[in-house]
Design a protein around this nucleic acid. Structure first.
Lengths: 210, 210
DNA sequence: TCCCGTGGCAAACAGTTGTTTACTGAATCC
DNA sequence: GGATTCAGTAAACAACTGTTTGCCACGGGA
């Protein structure tokens, strides 16, 4: 396995990356049931099966590991958002597709989503800031996509950006709602999220048209 | 001071309540810079100036203390929400008043707001559930107020409830945005929040009217 | 082939943690 | 006013924490 990294990086760096990833994976798993500021370095190395001191070969802090986890977690989300934004369809249809995409993402990467929701306002400054910065980039991207749609003609940049912010916040809210939901509650959550988006989209179409 | 508690409770219980409150206050202060799951019992008692074992006279756990903090924190928010809902005015005006009320609340009780935002998705199950339950009650209350307005005629209960949920989520988002904002950013945040509410209100007025 | 760079290790460090124990002294009850 | 309840104490417990030190083994360039 991973013969490609073997070829391009050499055994040495490949091994290093491997244990680094193992540390990230172990941390992410442990973070399902606690928050970053209470996660110990020894706890992580113990799960990986590596000496405590080895941790420092990869991260200075747990905070630094946290920031790395932010990139990993929001990276996958970023891909999903791009995919949704790329589809140009009828407004009614794109809503259901979006909600479905979010639900699928949460089902596929629950630990990532939980981590972001938990640490977005968590106790580690560096991680909070990393998440905020990344979500702001999402907002900009959504804003750009919205501005390109015909519905947004005559809108100020500021108004487009505030709508984008509303969408991004709603996305995060919906994702974390899916997280804590039992399978039979999922339908109801998707339903509510869809109606909320429809209401927002309705407000959008009438924005300063009256 | 507090002669009333003296009179009704006796010196004994009054003293107990006093140190209990001191524990809550100390914890809330410490939680400005870390999250509950990393807050130690000794840390709290040390600030209060009391022996570690004294903690157990008031709480079984840090989790139990956390639940008590939820009641305290959301209690004050509850008062504010009721006040806003009580005013029956023109839609345009109530929006600005609401945003102003939220801003004032955050300025007055920053630690409470931070605690709720942080622990809503935090690492302590009992606290998460307490917050979720309380926010759901807020949602019900908002829904009842919305249903009583003429704009909501012909709306299903479910639709009213989803709109209420949107408002509550938006309130929490806005509050935590105010939290991290520098004084000069406050205006911009209030502005954006106001516009978002206006757009939602616009969508509300056109809901299934077309 | 030899040598350097380096990822990982074992051990020891001083601090800290939650929890239990037996206790004291003052408010309360009868 | 004597007995009792009980909030708070001091001390000890084993278990854990992050960090430093010197060391080894081995991959990669010369």
């Amino acid at each position: 396995m991973s013969s490609s990294t073997h070829a391009t990086l050499g055994v040495r760096q490949a091994q290093k990356l491997k244990t680094r990833q193992a540390l990230l994976d172990a941390a992410l798993r442990l973070l399902e049931e606690q928050s970053l500021s209470s996660l110990g370095l020894r706890e992580v190395t113990r799960v990986v099966g590596v000496a405590p001191a080895a941790f420092y070969r990869h991260f200075r802090d747990m905070a630094e590991l946290g920031v790395a986890l932010v990139e990993e977690s929001l990276g996958s989300l970023h891909v999903m958002i791009r995919a949704v934004l790329a589809e140009q369809q009828e407004a009614e249809e794109v809503i259901d597709r979006s909600v479905e995409a979010v639900a699928g993402h949460v089902r596929r990467h629950p630990a990532h989503v939980r981590f972001v929701a938990r640490e977005r306002h968590g106790g580690v400054r560096a991680v909070r800031e990393a998440i905020a910065a990344e979500l702001e980039r999402f907002g900009d991207e959504v804003a750009a996509a919205l501005a390109a749609q015909e519905v947004s003609q005559g809108w100020s940049d500021e108004d487009v950006r505030m709508l984008a912010g509303l969408y991004v916040d709603h996305l995060v809210m919906t994702a974390s709602a899916f997280l804590e939901a039992s399978p039979e509650e999922e339908r109801a959550i998707a339903d509510t999220a869809g109606r909320q988006l429809r209401l927002i989209s309705l407000g959008r179409r009438h924005w300063r048209a009256a």
